[in-house]
Amino acid sequence: MSQVTLLPERIGRIFVDALRDWSATAALVRYALAHIVALRHPVVARVLYRQIYFTGIEALRAISLIALLTGIVIIVETVSLVGHQPAILGQIMLWVVVRELGPLLTGIVIIARSSSAAAAELATMKIRGEMNSLRVMGIDPMDILIVPRIVGMTLSVVAVTFYFQLTAILGGFAATSIWYGVPLRQGLQGVIDLMTVTEILASLTKALAFGIMIAATSCSFGLRAKGTVTAVPQAATGAVMRGIITLFLLDGVITYLFFV
């Protein structure tokens, strides 16, 4: 009896927690947009550049490898299934890499690398009283810690997503060129011919939405940390889990809006 009544309660609590998290995330995004001028300050701009370096530049090695392997696997599987047909190969690469896997895998890599790191860093700063140290120096911690992180991570996700797509397509067709003797240009031409404004817009929308969501979620979990050092891993884990779930939800919603 109690288990039967507890189940809806548990499910309800999951939704309530998720709504609370998304509401806190949305509040941070609103704050960042309202205080975007803080980035004009040289000290805040330096935090922004540092964030872009950590989230964007430092992720490129892992992203390059994943993108290259993804492109090669997709193209080899497709060729083995339907043979070498440039139009189909182009279509598959466009649908799978540009529409879906590019933004999604980039998002997952950034969540694993940077979202957990940002949440842990902010949680540590909060627990050690460093937010208050900034306040007594006359510096608003939200302006110097949150605004540049949200903007920096968002810009990084957009740029890295584009880089992923480019690497995966080039890598995939380079592999067919080497192994099957199909000219690289022919394969790329197949993708370019099928590319539409909607494809580019959908991909850009996903990258932008994922970037904002990942950044704000990590900041939100970091800022929520209270009390002891055990709150730090909790913030990091929470940011990763909530980030991944929201990433797939957003992906579904954007795909539905553009292509259904």
């Binding site: 700063m125 009283g129 007594v136």
Partner: peptide, 8 residues
């Protein structure tokens, strides 16, 4: 501050 209050 007694402990410096530095940013880590």
């Amino acid at each position: 501050p007694e402990d410096g209050g530095l940013i880590s």
